[in-house]
Nucleic acid binder design. Sequence first.
DNA 1: CAGTGTGAACCACTTCACAGCC
DNA 2: GGCTGTGAAGTGGTTCACACTG
Lengths: 238, 238
Amino acid sequence: MSADPAVRREIPDATVARLPEYLRSLSRLAEQGVLSVSSEELAAAVGVRSAQLRKDLSHLGSYGVRGVGYEVDTLALEISRALGLTQDWPVAIVGMGNLGHALASYSGFVTKGFRIVALFDDEPGLRGEVVQGVAIQPFRELPARHALDPISIGVIATPAVAAQTVCDRLVEVGVRSILNFAPAVLSVPDDVDVRRVDLSTELQILAFHAQQKALGALEPVAAARGIDGRTPSEAVAT
Amino acid sequence: MSADPAVRREIPDATVARLPEYLRSLSRLAEQGVLSVSSEELAAAVGVRSAQLRKDLSHLGSYGVRGVGYEVDTLALEISRALGLTQDWPVAIVGMGNLGHALASYSGFVTKGFRIVALFDDEPGLRGEVVQGVAIQPFRELPARHALDPISIGVIATPAVAAQTVCDRLVEVGVRSILNFAPAVLSVPDDVDVRRVDLSTELQILAFHAQQKALGALEPVAAARGIDGRTPSEAVAT
DNA sequence: CAGTGTGAACCACTTCACAGCC
DNA sequence: GGCTGTGAAGTGGTTCACACTG
């Protein structure tokens, strides 16, 4: 195996998942004119431990100053670079119901690196409607649209039944990154990356924790005196 | 202590996060009239390994039949029970923009266990609009609404700037489970459970993987120099 | 015998604690 | 002196492989 010294690959998935949070906090700090932060401060803002933050950042390289902290701008730039946000990612949304509209209008989209280049929906009533400067077109236009200006990321916001078909078409034209909001498991080739966001899954997880709390509460025995000051041992964490 | 023998608590978070997926697949199978599945089949449908599935299910109890598999109905019921879906969870949505509308209309909501009891938005133009049988009301009505029919889960679908205030009010009246769609980190007391769903985080994670793939692709010759890629062994996984 | 349930090995991530540097 | 960067220890989750059972 290789112990390549000069590399910055091999960033753990768990770290990658937190980088966007760090970036968001850094952007806010930058807006407020803050020039420098310590790992302690930034970690507090994001809601992680400072050791975790430092370890995460160490995967990107050494961008802090010992005894001082991190320069906000520099760190933000390095995280952006690591995430690939210094380049432009053309995004297409398929399915322009309420969710599709919400996504298209979502401010976070426009910000860093992402650019909506196409909106698809076969509903005749939506044909031609312009959202955020982009006109909704029938999904069959995908190949032509893609040929014109290649799509990097496809967002599926259709009903579950349509999701797999839409996904297949996207993969067909060459889209390799898919964000799926439909409650369906998509099957794709190995080289395609799918992430799923699902409301009902999240609700069910909340319900589980809520139930646990409820069950714990009516556990009379152990509560010798401690209903109030829960030991800081382990709160229900995300 | 806490070695309660008669309990089946202590389900790992990672398992809890997968149970909703299992449940969804089981429901689909049930619809198709399938009566029994093996761990192999169900795992394939969900996209996990069969050993993982069996281990997960073992945390709930022993509901399979050796040499045969799992009875679809029974297993679905047990998972529902474990997740707390056999009871009713009253949900309120705050912020009825496109996203709020999308969430309110989301079919997954209505299904198991979740019931929308209130929709809030201060926008005068939305006042009184009825979505899925529930009228939108000003957020200041929260305490009254909650007193009338307590809310278990609050969904925040407001802009980021309003999120913390909305969250504080929810916590104030006693809501202990919050699903946050706003791109903001909420601070809450220990006993409140917050889950965040964030579009731009997901996009950024996709962008990272896409970039990795791109870098890997132009590796064939240039490994000698500082560029380095990764071994082609394992593809980018979620 | 086919397929579950599970100890044990393995692996990834987190946390600790401190050396190193500004 | 203060804070980063990081080996080492600790924790939790996954995978293996097989004993067990209907």
